[in-house]
Design a protein around this nucleic acid. Structure first.
Length: 129
DNA sequence: ACCATGACTAGAA
DNA sequence: CTTCTAGCCATGG
């Protein structure tokens, strides 16, 4: 299929706010949308979301986007997003930091040593949605 | 325009 | 097995 010489992929141009709460960015909004699709009691990894957006290498941007997940609406279940190890790498960004684990346990997800138990079993792939 | 940072990941030693 | 390095892309200064 002929793909127009688009310099960049512009899937959607929704308004979102950067972690700094300054302007809007589509990248963050895409991350928020995927994150909101995470079923309750399930978890996913930054790379999975990044891959769904097109570049799994941009997992850093996903995590960074989550920085603004706390001030967007509807709220984004950032606590369901962990790294590919199943570790709650971003728990330090919660307030309090232990709230992330508490939220996961409230959904039936066992967390031990800051790591999701049976992470592979609870893993939810956005591409499979 | 350039440099530094960031809730990551995969690969190499 | 563990530990380190490099790549990645977007935002801020």
């Amino acid at each position: 299929m002929t793909r127009p010489p688009n310099k960049k992929n512009s899937p959607r141009r929704l308004s979102a706010v950067t972690p700094s709460g300054k302007k809007e960015s589509s990248f963050f909004e895409q991350v928020y949308e995927v994150a909101r699709q995470i079923p309750r009691g399930r978890v996913t990894s930054y790379g999975a979301i990044a891959a769904c957006l097109g570049s799994r290498l941009s997992a850093r941007m996903v995590g960074w986007a989550m920085n603004g997940a706390g001030h967007v609406s509807p709220a984004v279940p950032a606590h369901r997003v962990v790294n590919r190890n199943g570790m709650l790498s971003g728990k330090h960004h919660f307030s309090p930091p232990g709230s992330m684990q508490q939220l996961l346990e409230a959904e039936g997800i066992a967390v031990q040593d800051d790591t999701v138990v049976d992470f592979e079993r609870l893993f939810w792939d956005p591409a499979t949605a």
